[in-house]
Design a protein around this nucleic acid. Sequence first.
DNA 1: CAGAAGATCGGG
DNA 2: CCGATCTTCTGC
Length: 172
Amino acid sequence: MNKRITNVYFQNHDAVFIAEDLIGKTLVRQFETGEIIRAKIIETEAYVGPEDLACHASKGKTPRTSIMFDKGGTVYVYLIYGMYWMLNFVIAGENEPQAVLIRGVENCVGPGRLGKFLELDKSFYGEDLEISDRIWLEESTIDGEIIATPRIGIDYAGEFWKNKPWRFVLKV
DNA sequence: CAGAAGATCGGG
DNA sequence: CCGATCTTCTGC
């Protein structure tokens, strides 16, 4: 029970596979108070490397994106619109900068709201999902059909990348 | 160094 | 539809 997902899982697959596969798995957050929240993931998006113009890694390796160029299994967080911390997991191997954005869990839909719900901040940048005592993932399943749609809020990436069906949602 | 825009959200 | 709010990147 409560089997923790190890970094091999994140490193040995690509972001599109992981994004779909994470639907139904359990996101765990332990606060400093000791309180633990467990919620199943119901919405994700895949960002697939340097050539994907919607992926931050397409701008090259910068202080902000460097974690994506390391091996998968870590947390990539960044502040958007000056107020929302977006939760991503780094996928694939070294110099394969891919990531999965967690857009929603049961009882909390929307990436900005999720970051607030989980009380994320920049100290989570690079957090190791295999050993962290603050955030990790556990095996679980959920009933329902998974549907794929284009990703949200990436008009700047151009038609080709914008239309890729790399957003996965649990159909209720 | 100034300016613009962003993987969003909530209010009017 | 628009403002909040600030980091990051770009261009001069």
